[in-house]
Structure formats: C-alpha cells, structure tokens
C-alpha cells in the first residue's frame, strides 16, 4: 500500500520534472514555424538553423567562451583557497571561504547589481571580460565546495605516510594530493560550466546589450516573436547538462559530491 503510494508520488514528480522538457523537444521538431505539440510534421531544420544562423551562432559562441574561461578562473580561485583551508585551519581562511560561498546564497539580482556598479565605475561595462570575471566570482562557490570535499576526503595520515616515505611537500602535492582532488576539480569545473552557460541576470546586467549570451538571446526572441529554434536550443542545453552530469555520475561519486556520507561503495 505505502509502496504503491510512494511509486505514484515518484511518478508524479517525474512527470512534472520531465513534462516541460518533453513538450519542448516535441516542439523543436515542428516542420513549420509554429509552436505546436504534438509537432506537425517532423524536421531537424531548427537545429540546423541554430548552427548556421549568425544570430544564434554568435550567442552560442559567446556563451561557450564565457562558460569555458569563467569556470577555469573560478577553479583557479577555488583550488588554492580550498587547499589553504584544508592545510591550515585559521579563521581568516574560513572567513574567505564563507565569502566565496556567499554569492550563491544572496539573491542573484543583488550580486548582479554589485557587479554592474563595479564595471561601470571601472569602465569595463559591456565587455566580455566583465562577464567572464563576474561569472567566475558568481560561481566560485561550486568548485570551492566540491574541491573542499575532495580535500576533506584526504586523511591526514595519508599525507604523513607519503612524508615518512621520503616525499617533500612539493612531491606530496604532486603525487598524492593533486591526483586525489583531481576528480573533485573536474566536477566543480563542470558544475560551474553548466551553470554559467545558463546564467541570465548577471550576464544581462554586466554586458547584456553588447555581449549577447544564449539565455539573453532566448529571452529576447521570447519577447520579440517565437521561433522553434528556441526549443531546439533548449533541447541542446538539456542534453548537454544531462551528458555532463551523467558523466560525473558514471565516473565520479555524485552522491558524495552532493553531500552524502555513504561508505556504500567500499
């Protein structure tokens, strides 16, 4: 009885979670330039248009560039901070850590407005560099949290074992610490990458009129006339996210990354 109830509940959640995505993928296959579901006729032309029309290609390129570089930058900030915090438990490192996770906790408008005031003052308003740096700071939380988890998973005795076997601290970092946190770095990078691809408000506030990212482009088309290309973009995004998280789930320890303490796989 309660098992059936549970399955009905889970089924309903699954339906609500995937419903919009199913409709969008259906619409993206429409043969005519109309948003119909079920699609009227099946064609891939909207996917082709996404990859050939400059009005879509430029935002795609912008978004990919911003996501790639900003998550790299976020990673470069998070790694030394997480390392320092793990190695030396001092209050100012902890304070910096709290600072690093706060952009993710505040309502994004507030952070976005902060960035806007800053870039206007500095004179970089409207530049792609502004978007990249803003995204790096905005999403630094993700690699910071995952990499810290990675460091926490390194028992102190493992480091000491390496030392008794003759490794100096540089060697320990190269042969033990780095290889052990690498999977966490990759996950953190991937999280930041996917979220940066999808971010709207910071990108919009900082350089919305000059550096058009995909979410901005989609919203603009939503305002000024629908086209099924929007649906095909959405499908590509969902698939990309599913692919990346699927890979993390397959090769990494997703439950642990999300905070489970499960010794199940041992």
């Amino acid at each position: 009885m309660s098992k059936t109830l549970r399955n009905i509940f889970l089924g309903l959640v699954l339906f609500l979670l995937s419903g919009p995505l199913v409709v969008v993928s259906g619409v993206s296959l429409n043969a005519k330039k109309r948003l119909f579901f079920p699609p009227e006729g099946v064609s891939m032309r909207w996917y082709v248009e996404l990859l050939t029309e400059n009005s879509w290609l430029i935002p795609v390129k912008n978004s990919l560039t911003i996501a790639f570089t900003s998550s790299l930058l976020a990673l470069s900030i998070a790694l030394p901070l997480a390392y320092f915090l793990w190695r030396y438990r001092v209050f100012y490192a902890r304070a910096l850590f709290t600072l690093g996770i706060s952009p993710f906790i505040l309502p994004p408008v507030i952070t976005a407005l902060g960035f806007l005031s800053f870039w206007v003052t500095v004179g970089l308003y409207g530049q792609m560099a502004a978007t990249i740096i803003s995204h790096a700071i905005f999403f630094v939380t993700l690699p910071l949290v995952t990499i810290s988890l990675g460091f926490e998973s390194i028992d102190h005795e493992i480091v000491e074992a390496a030392e008794t076997m003759g490794a100096d601290s540089r060697m320990v970092f190269r042969t033990v610490i780095f290889p052990m946190v690498r999977p966490y770095m990759i996950s953190g990078y991937a999280f930041a990458y996917v979220l940066s691809l999808n971010e709207y408000i910071v990108a919009y506030m900082v350089a919305g009129f000059t550096v058009e990212t995909l979410p901005i482009k989609i919203f603009n088309s939503l305002r000024y006339g629908y086209t099924p290309v929007m649906a095909s973009v959405t499908v590509v995004f969902v698939l990309l996210a599913a692919l990346i998280f699927g890979l993390i789930g397959r090769f990494g320890d997703l439950p642990k990354l999300l905070g489970a303490l499960n010794p199940e796989n041992q």
């Binding site: 691809l197 999808n198 709207y200 989609i218 939503l222 959405t234 969902v238 996210a241 998280f245």
Partner: peptide, 10 residues
C-alpha cells in the same frame, strides 16, 4: 542547471 529563461519558455 536550466536557465530561468528556458524553464519559463518550457
């Protein structure tokens, strides 16, 4: 990870 705009559109 879906953008708000995508959720809204969907």
């Amino acid at each position: 990870s879906l953008s708000e705009v995508i959720v809204g559109f969907a």
